[in-house]
Design a protein around this nucleic acid. Structure first.
Length: 674
DNA sequence: CTATGAAGGACCC
DNA sequence: ATCCAGGGTCCTTCAGAG
């Protein structure tokens, strides 16, 4: 979107350009109960102060007392504490230190100046109120009325009518409705936006084949090459016509080219775009916001022009300096980019090298000039907000759902990953993440779930005997690598279990737990068993009276991995899980494993070897077994090329292994000569 | 002492 | 009556491993 939700520029910044400091001071307005981060926080010109006050008041009235608001207050306190700590630190510096730092900073600045580059013409294109504009285009009845795209929980963007009421992106729909009772909220339609985005991209690619899209509605271009070639264009190559046949010819300068781009976008999509033209990406981005909507702005390609532009530019306008940084900087009197320079001595001492370098570059108006498409993605995730869930069984079920969804996405892009992160948000909006890395990357639902489930289980236990009350759960996969061809043909644990199910008695260990089966009949969708299971519709509280037959093999507890005999239906099963969670601590569990050591053997579902190792080791073993190609790489020998054929006598795993170094034992084993 | 993984945040759209 | 998203990236800090 062209605005971040808490800020935007609708008209030229004339009135707001020098307003940074006032904004900062005024932000702690009385209407928001002193909570800066709740305020409308807008820079919009053309909105009377009265309106602003009213809007902030409505937002505050709607928010105060809510769990959300309380959490915002908590976060606000944290920021205040950070600022206080910073203040204390500042006071500990003496003037000479600062002077010394200034000299150092000047040296760095000289290096930055060295790298200043005016040779590239960078353009940032930004579609105006993109989602809203698309919806209005496709449904003219939405034009001229305040509307927004999103849901009652959150708006993605709003049209300009709605913005007059203070309705904007990143605002929950129910508050927006309060601000503007006539507001029409239409649901997002990403497929449509993607299509429009594609149409726009097609145009942009003609000006820069390496064009770099940042999202559906914005992109960076380097039109240097195009400008050079354009000099030899004939009239026809610079002429475009509207749908009505009205034609227009464009010039050869950067501004002409951008006019042309925007013209073509509008002809093709009936949507307007704004653009910024500058010697680097940082400036181009700021510029595209300058004459929004449907405008463009160019910063002349010389040092003086850049410095003039940057002089009074509020740091908040710079991409990368957000709400928190802005108030931290504001607390030491830094509001504009030139303030960054003035306070360079202080900043050097206060911030990390990376941050400080970034600040210096901003102060000098220096930014990146290479619009390289970022390489491959780093992570993939799914998360969902829901009405409170606190029953463990339901939490595990949600977790499984998310894992399934994530795996589906991973497979779409043919990716596998090593690190699994569970994200939870409590009903108090407290966010926590827990991560665990596997030995080898995987794409397998069961493996993903078994890991995520363990993380979730730990969290549930952590707050025991209180229930874990969540409003959001998410699963992320990182440490990604392409799922190789060999892994396409690799035997999945799914298939493996299907095969071995008949002859194998439980336990399978942690890799395939009871939760899987439990979930599978809850969802009427069994991951690896074809037969129908009882109680398909029984979740969570309804007892499947239709099945009186006692088949407790299906009730395998995701906590203790056992199938307790007293579980005859879902109700008793849920009770068991609760009991298990709240009365079994980790020590007990480990004792159990220890105790049962001898008869508690796991049979690897992949290589069929029986392992008498702790659960952790067993998991590690299966990880390894599942990824035979990886093993091959480690080995590059013949001995384990067909792990499944190994005789049961020769375990591919050290029989007894201290579980503390489980992570590397496997590797060591493979490396060491037999 | 350093390279690394986990956890937590800030930011962006 | 309802009562603040979801998909990413990058940076910082901390702790334990090598």
């Amino acid at each position: 979107m062209e605005e971040e939700g808490d800020e935007e520029g609708e008209e030229q910044w004339d009135q707001i350009w020098n307003q940074g400091e006032q904004d900062y001071v005024a932000a702690a307005g009385s209407n928001t109960g002193g909570l800066d981060r709740m305020a409308l926080n807008d820079n919009k010109a053309g909105m009377g102060n009265l309106d602003k006050e009213r809007i902030n008041k409505v937002i505050y009235e709607m928010s105060k007392g809510s769990k959300y608001y309380e959490n915002e207050q908590r976060k606000e306190e944290q920021v205040k504490a950070k600022i206080a700590a910073q203040h204390k630190q500042i006071q500990s510096f003496d003037a000479r230190e600062i002077e010394k730092s200034e000299l150092q900073a000047d040296a760095m600045l000289a290096a930055i100046e060295e790298m200043r580059d005016f040779s590239r013409t960078i353009v940032h294109i930004d579609m105006d109120a993109f989602y809203a504009a698309v919806e209005m285009r496709d449904n003219p009845s939405l034009k001229n009325i305040p509307m927004a795209v999103g849901g009652s929980a959150m708006l993605s963007t709003s049209n300009y009518e709605a913005r007059r009421f203070g309705v904007r992106a990143a605002m929950p729909g129910f508050i927006a409705k309060k601000l503007c009772p006539d507001l029409v909220i239409v649901p997002t339609n990403f497929d449509k936006y993607r299509q429009v985005s594609k149409d726009v991209k097609e145009i942009l690619l003609q000006y820069d084949p390496n064009m770099c899209p940042m999202s559906l509605d914005e992109a960076y271009l380097d039109i240097t090459q195009h400008l050079a070639e354009r000099k030899n264009f004939d009239a026809e190559q610079k002429t475009f016509r509207t749908a009505d046949g009205e034609q227009r010819m464009f010039g050869v300068d950067a501004e002409d080219v951008v006019q042309e781009i925007r013209f073509r976008i509008e002809v093709k999509t009936q949507l307007t775009a704004s653009a910024g033209i500058a010697p680097n990406m940082m400036l181009a981005k700021v510029c595209s916001d300058f004459n929004k909507p449907n405008g463009q702005y160019l910063i002349p390609f010389n040092r003086q022009a850049v410095m003039d532009f940057v002089k009074d530019l509020p740091v908040r306008k710079v991409c990368g300096i957000g709400r928190v940084s802005c108030s931290m900087l504001g607390a030491m009197g830094v509001v504009t980019c030139s303030d960054l320079f003035r306070k360079r001595g202080l900043l050097l001492k206060l911030y990390s090298a990376i941050s400080f370098n970034y600040f210096l570059r901003v102060s000098a108006g220096v930014g990146s000039t290479s619009v390289q498409r970022g390489d491959d993605r780093k992570s993939m995730s799914t998360e969902r907000t829901f009405a409170e869930i606190n029953r463990p069984a339901e939490l595990f079920a949600k977790c499984y759902e998310l894992c399934e969804a994530l795996v589906e996405d991973l497979k779409k892009e043919n990716l596998k990953g090593k690190t699994i992160t569970l994200k939870i948000k409590t009903i108090k909006y407290i966010v926590r993440t827990k991560a665990h890395s596997l030995l080898n990357a995987t794409q397998d639902v069961q493996l993903l779930y078994s890991t995520a489930r363990d993380l979730l289980r730990t969290e549930i236990r952590l707050c025991s005997p209180e229930p874990l009350r969540l409003r959001l759960m998410g699963v992320r996969m990182s440490n990604l690598s392409p799922a190789s061809k060999s892994s396409d043909t690799q035997i999945t644990i799914h298939q493996m279990l299907k095969k071995s199910r008949g002859e194998q008695k439980l336990p399978f260990g942690a890799v395939v737990s009871g939760a899987d089966r439990f979930l599978s009949f809850m969802e009427q969708k069994d991951p690896y068993v074809d037969e129908d299971l009882p109680g398909a519709n029984a979740f969570p509280d309804e007892v499947p009276h239709t099945s009186t037959e006692k088949d407790n093999t299906e009730f395998i507890c995701p906590v203790c991995d056992e199938h307790p005999e007293d579980c005859v239906d879902l109700r008793t099963f849920n009770e068991h899980i609760d009991l298990c969670l709240f009365h079994t601590n980790d020590e007990k569990k480990e004792e159990k494993v220890e105790e049962k050591g001898e008869d508690f053997a796991f049979k690897c579902p992949v290589c069929c070897v029986v392992l008498k190792s702790p659960l952790d080791s067993f998991n590690a073993h299966v990880d390894a077994c599942l990824n035979r190609s990886a093993i091959k790489e480690i080995l590059s020998e013949e001995s384990l090329s067909t792990p499944r054929k190994r005789s049961s006598g020769a375990s591919p795993f050290p029989a007894k292994k201290p579980k503390t170094d489980g992570r590397h034992t496997l590797l060591n084993y493979f490396k060491s000569p037999k």
